[in-house]
């Protein structure tokens, strides 16, 4: 009996993980917009924009596996790092008239998911570039 060998490349498995994390990131932002932040000026739109962008990038990343996927992963990293930096600023001071003094569970969860997204997407970019080379 021949042992089962996955046809998926390692970079594809990492890509799927990145897609899942991106959808999770967008989901948390959407949930926070809907239940909590929809009445906060500017921040409400940015949260909604993050959710939509995460979903769009995730879907596009699911459809592409070539060089375009690398660009999409880089854009996911850029968007997510922007979110993390914004959270760090809001924790320390005021950003767009909003500050986040309380480390609420959704905030902690979103930060962990975003951190994982950056790491996984970066790993995907590195693996894919190595495969191309």
């Amino acid at each position: 009996m021949t042992p089962y060998k996955s046809k998926l490349r390692r970079s594809d498995r990492i890509r799927f993980l990145a897609i899942g994390l991106l959808l999770c990131e967008g989901g948390v932002h959407l949930q926070q917009y809907e239940s909590f932040l929809h009445s906060v000026p500017t921040i409400n739109t940015l949260f909604l924009l993050n959710a939509v962008s995460a979903a769009v990038i995730a879907l596009a990343l699911a459809a592409c596996r070539n060089e375009i996927a690398i660009l999409l992963a880089i854009s996911a990293i850029g968007m997510t790092v922007t979110g993390l930096v914004s959270l760090a600023i809001a924790r320390q001071s005021v950003l767009f008239n909003y500050s986040e003094p309380t480390l609420r569970f959704p905030v902690l969860f979103a930060a962990l998911v975003e951190l994982a997204t950056v790491l996984v997407a970066s790993r995907f970019v590195a693996l894919r570039l190595r495969e191309i080379a």
Binding site: V40, P41, T42, N44, T45, L49, V52, V56
Partner: peptide, 21 residues
């Protein structure tokens, strides 16, 4: 997609607050 997302971001940043308490 990039243009659409970018344009939305520009509108948000230029327009300032929308809705809210």
């Amino acid at each position: 997609i990039v243009i659409a997302v970018g344009a939305t971001l520009v509108i948000v940043l230029a327009g300032g607050s929308t809705g809210g308490a």
